[in-house]
Structures are given as structure tokens and as C-alpha cells.
Amino acid sequence: MSGGVWVFVENSDGAVDMISREAIGAARVVADGMGATLTGLVFGQNVAGAAAAAFDLGVDAVIAADDATLAGGRLEALGPLVVKLAQERQPDAIIIGASTRGRDLAAWTGADLDAGVVAEAIDLAVDGGVVKATRAVYTGKLLCDTFAKGAPQIVTLRSRAFAQAEPTGKTGTPEMVSAAVAEDAIPTKILGFEGKGGKVSLTDASKIVSGGRGVGGPEGFEPLRELADTLGAALGASRAAVDAGWISYDHQVGQTGKTVAPDLYIACGISGAIQHQAGMRSSKVIVVINKDPDAPVFKLARYGIVGDLFKVVPALTAEFRKRLG
């Protein structure tokens, strides 16, 4: 019997993380395409809630490990466990959301199993038992059709490229397994951790309001922040604004910043240099506000307004407030 399709389920506080809800959604389609079962890997501490959530999101089976060594999501604890299970059970494919942890885990597993890893797929199809992926290369300037040869086929998924799995009402009993390595054998120790705390993260955001050199200074981000708060959006920036010190680097979108794909990207005072485009061109709807009608960023836009962002942005905020109540 084949080991079917596996999906790595990142979880926190008994819930499935958003990137893994997307991974479960995509993996379900792959499993159905292969006529295989879908198994969720739920590792961590106090994972019962996340295991139940994984069933609800549509996996057929869950392999769970509940152990203190797995709590911080350390690669040296997760990697050996996934490798050991894969050696024992021979899955056909392992699907992993391309978070920082997911990328590392995919690389580790591929190295130890001598298996191919396809990085950051944005589209998947199944063709005769092979997971065919499309991914962006050369920072989004080119696309590439690719697949892993042999088994397991390890594929990571770009954040927000796939629809999240919906609750199905399904329930089930996880199969519990033990951790693969004891604490003494793990070479890293976590001394401290500082969570991000409630902020909408740029890569997870479904809406982004982004500002560039056109905002003119740190205080120029204020009207953008108000619009973002009104919409529940995250705040983005061009490198010019980050380099000027107006906003911190974790807001930078682009080739040397974050790659984002929100439903709505509102670019304010950004010219649209090729390096900025690399990070935002797969957004669903792009709105551009720029006083220069020839700014290259208009070429990517669905809607454009030529004008002063300090007039247009507050007017938009007021209109949204009216409509959203």
C-alpha cells in the first residue's frame, strides 16, 4: 500500500496556522488527484486541538506527536521525525507551506531522503501520480514548470497562492507517535522567544496599503496607517521609504523584502521599480495612487488614480468608513 499524500500541519495554541490551512486545501486536491489518502502531520505540544482541527479541515488521517522537544518547532526535532516516519511508511508526496519553518523542514527532509524538493509552488496539478508544480523564478520575472523525480515528492507552497481548506465537520482519532530524538540529542537550545504580537503580518495579509518615497517622511505614513486600520490591512513600503528610515525593514515589499500576494494592494507614492514589482505583482487587485501619470506601476494596476496621495488617501479612508460603518 502506498503511504499516500502527507501534509505538514503547523499549529499554535490548538489551532492550525493559516499557511497550513492553505497547504491542507492544496494537498486535498493532490491526494484526490492521485486517488490517495491525505494524512496530516501534527507535531508540537498539546496538539489535540490542532489534530481535531486538521480532521475538520478535511484530512483523512492524522499522525500526531505531543512532546516538549517539539514545542518550539525546532528543525532538529521536527526534521528527524519526518524523515523517520517517511522511511517507515513511504509517502508518495509531502506538501508543506513555505513558512520559514516549512522551507527548512522541506530542505532537511529532502537532503536526508535524497528526495527532490520543489520550492514555493504557486500552482499544482497531478499527472499520472506526479505532482506538477508551477513556480516563479528569477524573482517573479519568469515561471517554471517543475516536479520532483522519485518519492517522496516534497513540495512547498508559496503563502497565499492556494485557497484555505474549509471546515468539513469531519472528526477522527489521531495516531500518536513519539518524538524521534531526545532533548539531549538536539544540538540547539532555545534561550528566548519574542512573538510578533497580534500585528497583521505582511505575507499573511489579504489587504496591503503600501507607501513609497512619495509619502515624503515618517509622518507621511500616518494617512496610510489610518486607511490600513480602516480596512484591517497590513502596512507595506518600498525600499526607498525603508532606506530613508521612515519605516522599519519588516514592512519592505520586493525583491530584497517580502513577496506578497494579497487580494488588494494599494500602492501610494511608489513608482514601481522592477525590484518592487517582483514582490507584489501577483496581488489580485492592484490600486495605484501616484501624481505621475507615467509611473511604471500603473502598468500593473487594475485601477489608478493620478493625484496627490495626501488628498486621495484620506478621501478613500473617509469613503471606506462610511461604507463599512
Binding site: 524538493v117 520575472k141 519568469l142 515561471l143 505583482r281 500603473f298 487594475r302
Partner: peptide, 25 residues
């Protein structure tokens, strides 16, 4: 262990930008 036979340009974004023009912001 991976095959990347087919590389091609990113298709241009579909459609033309619609400019929003009116008498007031």
C-alpha cells in the same frame, strides 16, 4: 531529483488599467 524543463516568461497582467477620473477626490 528535480526536473525544471520548462521556463517561460511571466505572462503580462491581464487587462488595461482603468483610470478613475472625476471632478473631486
Amino acid at each position: 531529483r528535480t526536473d525544471w524543463t520548462k521556463v517561460y516568461p511571466m505572462p503580462p497582467r491581464e487587462g488595461e488599467v482603468e483610470m478613475i477620473v472625476a471632478d473631486s477626490v
